[in-house]
């Protein structure tokens, strides 16, 4: 890619969230780590236990945002959803939805990045470190898809 073309390419943010100490809940952070490992110009990856309101700053700084989370009962191996801003209020601070973060980014910073939710199917969520075998397969498929969408070269994914 030429320097000029690189400057015109969208800035991409991948936020993978979940708890690696709860088996397949670690799918989101695993994707973030894989993307970080592969690298790529103008692509940033963040891992987090859960979304937080200050993530709106990072979201506003990018043209494309991929939220990556484990899903309890979605399609296998993964599903991709287009996300739009939608404010909400919860009864606990332990929940913050991607739509709400997009709404905050729009309201506070006037930013409306293209946003996707990559929902990777998980199966077990006990207090155990490490993904299940089936979730690991789904992770590989999801990372392969995402690297393709992001224009990253095929590479061995460190899972």
């Amino acid at each position: 890619m030429t320097e000029h073309a690189l400057a015109d390419s969208p800035r991409v943010l991948v936020i993978g969230y979940g708890n690696p100490g709860r088996q397949d809940d670690g799918l989101g952070p695993a994707v973030a780590l894989a993307i970080e490992h592969l690298g790529g110009p103008r692509i940033a990856a963040l891992d987090a236990y859960q979304l937080n309101i200050e993530d709106a700053i990072d979201i506003a700084d990018h043209d494309v945002v991929w939220f990556v989370d484990a899903s309890l009962d979605g399609p296998e191996p993964f599903a991709v959803h287009i996300m739009a801003p939608a404010a909400s209020i919860e009864f606990t601070s332990h929940i913050l939805r991607p739509e709400a973060l997009l709404a905050i980014a729009r309201q506070m910073f006037g930013a409306t990045p293209e946003a996707h939710l990559l929902a990777i199917r998980g199966y077990d969520f006990e207090f155990i470190e490490g993904l299940t075998a089936r979730a690991t397969d789904n992770l590989a498929a999801a990372v392969s898809m995402l690297t393709g969408r992001l224009g990253l070269k095929d590479a061995e994914v460190r899972l």
Binding site: N19, D69, S71, L72, T92, H94, I95
Partner: peptide, 24 residues
């Protein structure tokens, strides 16, 4: 009811955040 609960802001089974709605 939600306003009362928010005052305490309880920790739910909070170590997991897999997708899924949390309706009331």
């Amino acid at each position: 009811v939600e306003v009362a609960i928010r005052a305490y802001d309880p920790c739910l089974s909070c170590a997991t955040h897999a997708l899924g709605d949390m309706p009331l």
